[in-house]
Amino acid sequence: MKEDNFLKKIDWLILPLLGMGVVVLLWQVSSATSAKELPSPAKTWASSKDYILKPFEKRGEMDQGILRFTWYSLVLVAKGYALALIIGTPIGFFLGLSKMFTKTFDPIIQILRPVSPLAWLPLGLVLFVSAGKNASELGALFTIAVCAMWPTVLNTAVGVRAIPQDYLNVAKVLKLSRTKTLFKVLIPATLPYMFTGFRLSLGIAWLVIVAAEMLTGRPGVGGFLWQEYNALIYEHIILCIITIGVVGFVLDRLMSVVERRFKTA
């Protein structure tokens, strides 16, 4: 009985490890049998351990520790993401507050929303071509902002529409000014929805960064991945995929902690 309880207590750790074990095993088996080109787990480790064990080392522009690459990517994501929130949140508020605005802009939003980052990036590069050296960075920022802002826009709009009439009545009875109504009533009441949007937007921003770096060849996880593909070093592609996944997971966890704080408030 006692052992049973103990197993139950640590199954949150054991079961995920078991799941990963199964996947690594499948990877091992398929690399040994059907997919001969796929590097085995051991080979991947051997070839990648320099990048993992010295994660911040810089040996050359496109030959750096994996966390150093991740850092470059994160910095770019942070800029693009901030841009997405700064643009997306007010648009969400306008959509939530004004039926006219919704009727006017909702169709175009629904059309732009599903467009892939791969389609936006070339446009971004063209738009900023006059920026010369900075064109690739600005193009990437533009793409991240345009792709990542939609969840923020839509969730903020839903949140504003969901504000209970009671709170609006309080603002009306007190004759609060527009700015006071915005900061004391509308924004606090919408925050939980906004943060759901922020979390989803961050996920998309991270997806987009990889694509943007691959296409522009900027140093970062995505750029490294593309370079190693061209250099036929498949082990490093796997290293990049795992890194991208882990970082995305960690970002999502961090945001959901923040989100929960606002849910209960």
Partner: peptide
């Protein structure tokens, strides 16, 4: 014609702002 602070209301469901 419009609400105003000359009429103090106690709403049926309190209507306090939960974040304050």
């Amino acid at each position: 014609t419009a609400p105003g602070p000359d009429r103090g209301i106690v709403f049926q469901n309190y209507s306090l702002l939960p974040w304050l």
